[in-house]
Amino acid sequence: MSDAIWAGTVSFAGYEGAELEGYLARPLGGFSRGGVVVIHHLPGYDAGTKEIVRRFAVQGYAAVCPNLYSREGVGVSPDDQAAAVRARGGVPDEQLVGDVAGGAAYLNSLEHANGKIGVIGYCSGGRQAFLVACSLGIDAAVDCYGAFVASDPPAGHPLKVRSLLPKAPGLSCPVLGLFGEEDSFPAPAEVGVLDAELDRLGKAHEFHVYPGAGHAFFSVDRPAYRPAAAVDGWKRIFAFFGRHLAG
């Protein structure tokens, strides 16, 4: 399989028809492929996230990252967009689901799409990936250290979100969860609560907690980066999507 790809900025309709900016990468080979919606972390739609999108394309997937902060206006810097959204408590859950649904529809409109969609998110995006898996009919979801899935934020926390445990019965697809043992949000205890609830519900899931890793261990441009955990995590991600998004 050739690793030649096309990557660049696109636009598509999100929640309530809003026009969203997105970053798309797709293989140039003419073969059937699954799609992956990449949900960016709380700091926003940045260079590190775009690199992740390209990485999926090299592996044979069409991938798109919606800029969830697009509504802050054209010409506004990504940092200023992120600051404005954080000040309001984050992206509302209903809006997030609608935006990811728009990204999934865009991927399925591309030539050679096989109709299968996975979603992956990091940090706040990890929580949002789980939310999407409980709200839309997708094929696979990866939660990379998403907090407040199994608990509400502590008092005074800037994110205005709630636990997603009540939505877990609606989980539509298998979930891969990748977490750090030294993380506080989510702490291992919260991961354990979610693991136990998905066991109770009979939902397919696979969780891994990495010793010596904290939050954001996939972020190569941050001190939190942990190569051993990240390398193993990427192997698990591609194996997981390979099982659930193939042909």
Rank of each mutant, 00 (worst) to 15 (best):
A4I: 12
A4S: 14
W6H: 15
G8F: 03
S11D: 01
A13S: 15
G14C: 07
A18Q: 13
G22D: 04
G22E: 02
S32V: 04
S32A: 14
R33S: 11
V36C: 00
V38G: 05
I39P: 04
P43A: 04
I52W: 00
Y61K: 11
A63T: 12
V64Y: 02
L68G: 07
E72P: 12
V74D: 10
R88T: 09
G90W: 01
D93C: 06
E94R: 14
Q95W: 00
Q95S: 08
L96F: 11
G98T: 07
V100K: 06
G103S: 07
A104C: 07
A105S: 15
L110C: 01
H112C: 14
A113G: 11
I117M: 06
V119N: 01
C123P: 14
R127A: 00
F130D: 03
L131E: 03
L131I: 09
L131N: 06
L131C: 05
A133Y: 08
C134T: 06
S135K: 04
S135Q: 03
G137T: 06
A140Q: 08
V142Y: 07
A147E: 03
F148R: 07
D152I: 14
G156F: 13
G156P: 15
H157Y: 09
L159V: 13
K160L: 14
K160D: 15
R162P: 08
L164C: 09
L165M: 11
K167R: 15
G170M: 06
G170K: 10
L171K: 13
L171D: 09
V175C: 05
G177T: 09
F179K: 01
E182W: 02
S184R: 14
P186E: 08
E190A: 05
V191D: 00
V193L: 15
L194D: 03
D195W: 12
L201R: 09
L201S: 05
G202M: 09
G202K: 11
H205V: 04
H205E: 08
H205C: 08
F207W: 12
H208I: 03
H215S: 05
S219P: 00
S219F: 09
S219Q: 11
D221P: 07
R226H: 11
R226Y: 00
R226C: 11
A229C: 05
A229M: 04
V231K: 14
G233L: 03
K235L: 13
I237M: 02
F240Y: 03
F241N: 03
H244L: 02
